[in-house]
Amino acid sequence: MTTTTSFGTWNNHGDRTQLTVEATVAAYISGGSSEWLERVNEEGHFNAMVDAYRDAINAALPDGVTLNGNEFYGPYYAENHGWDEDLNDELGQLNITAIIETIDLAAIVERHDPDLINQDATLDLGAQWHTLTIGDDIVIDLPVRVNEVIPAALLREIADLALTDAGWERTGPWGTPAVALHTPVTRLT
């Protein structure tokens, strides 16, 4: 059995200006409108952001080291440290701060942003390539040229796979084809 010890607190390694992971996420999103912040809290998106951030931190930490609450724990004895020395700081201690800095909190917040979770997807049947647009910003070129003869059902299946690969899922049926197909989508979390 491995003996564990505290490696320090969130305030020591994660964010020297905040005492908790929750406070760090709250400070990060505090620039949002009051209406948006209210929806984030009331609809459970804040907790999802915090949980995803904690999960990302724990996934990035080496085996045997965890963030539990606002405390980091790991093996007490050096012979039980199973990580590469390049993860250590200049004092020979695990550089938890550097590990946390590799995590993109902005991407986590975006993945749980209530304004971005539910969108409309448009499968454009024009131009040279078929393209899939999610909301206003995400454009995915599908690997199907317009001049290729492909059944509509297969094209919708390819679009569904592209949605999944991009982290989305369809929540309704594809609309009737004309120049484009439309469907509601939600972000996978």
Rank of each mutant, 00 (worst) to 15 (best):
A166H: 14
V40A: 02
A166M: 06
Y53R: 00
A166S: 07
G32F: 10
P151T: 09
A127C: 01
D120R: 01
E90N: 09
E85H: 06
E35W: 03
N80I: 10
G92N: 08
L87W: 14
G92E: 15
T186G: 00
A60Q: 03
L155C: 03
G8Y: 06
P114R: 01
D124F: 13
A59W: 00
L67I: 01
E148Q: 05
A59L: 11
E85W: 13
L61R: 04
N95I: 08
D141N: 10
G74E: 14
Y76E: 14
F46C: 00
E42R: 15
G172Y: 07
L67K: 08
A59P: 01
L105H: 02
L19N: 15
L142R: 00
D104Q: 09
E38Q: 15
F46H: 03
L161P: 03
D124E: 15
I150N: 00
E85I: 08
V149Y: 05
A107F: 01
H81N: 14
A162R: 08
W129H: 04
E148W: 02
T122K: 11
I29Y: 03
M49G: 00
G31H: 13
L188V: 03
T164V: 10
N12W: 05
T4V: 15
F46Q: 07
R111L: 14
E110C: 07
D86H: 12
T171P: 01
A162M: 11
D115I: 01
E43R: 05
N41S: 15
N41C: 11
